[in-house]
């Protein structure tokens, strides 16, 4: 196993640039200050008809298969999405509908979401965390939410959100370091 933590971001936002990925940038930047990492990203809205038209795993095109394997083989998964109509977008869920049932078991998953206002914050706990509960994944206890008002465009300015990112990652830094070096399962 590599010494660097292999982080894979699942991006549920259709926009580019997006507040969701701006939040993820802050997360990755903070985490890289704690341990060496390499990151890759899967944009669910860029996977195309080979993804959207697939009902079963065997229906997907080879590039989509590669993206799914990337997700399944990560040391840390960052599941990041905007809130659409009170939950994660259907496209985001569709990716996880194609992920192998046991591929995420005991895998560290950091939950992050952005929404129009603070009223959406519990989407992390009531929608995203149960999804990874199904997968028996190891979700990081602190999930990260940011509202539109925390951003100037796509620049995150609210210091409270930076603080929460720091707290959430510090909680699991030892665990992630162990996963990166393969010293502990």
């Amino acid at each position: 196993m590599s010494e660097r933590l292999r982080v894979v971001v699942v991006n549920g936002s259709p926009r580019e640039p997006s507040k969701t990925m701006a939040l993820v940038d802050v997360i990755l930047d903070t985490l890289s200050g704690m341990l060496p990492l390499e990151s890759a990203r899967v944009d669910v809205y860029r996977l195309g008809p080979g993804f959207t038209g697939a009902i079963e795993r065997e229906d997907v095109t080879p590039d989509v298969e590669a993206a799914l394997r990337l997700v399944e083989s990560a040391d840390l998964l960052v599941a990041a999405t905007p809130v659409f109509r009170g939950s994660y977008p259907g496209m985001f869920k569709h990716l996880f509908d194609l992920v192998d049932q046991y591929a995420l078991a005991n895998k560290p998953v950091l939950l992050a979401a952005t929404g129009g206002g603070d009223r959406h914050a519990l989407v992390l706990e009531h929608a995203l965390r149960p999804l990874f509960g199904f997968f028996e994944a190891l979700t990081v206890p602190v999930a990260i939410f940011a509202s539109s008002g925390d951003f100037d465009g796509t620049v995150l300015l609210n210091p409270a959100v930076y603080g929460r990112v720091e707290t959430g990652l510090a909680d699991v830094a030892d665990l992630l370091r162990a996963r990166a070096t393969g010293t502990v399962v």
């Binding site: 008002g149 925390d150 951003f151 100037d152 620049v155 300015l157 609210n158």
Partner: peptide, 9 residues
Amino acid sequence: GGSPASAVS
């Protein structure tokens, strides 16, 4: 208007 970002900027 009260958004944290505009207060900070």
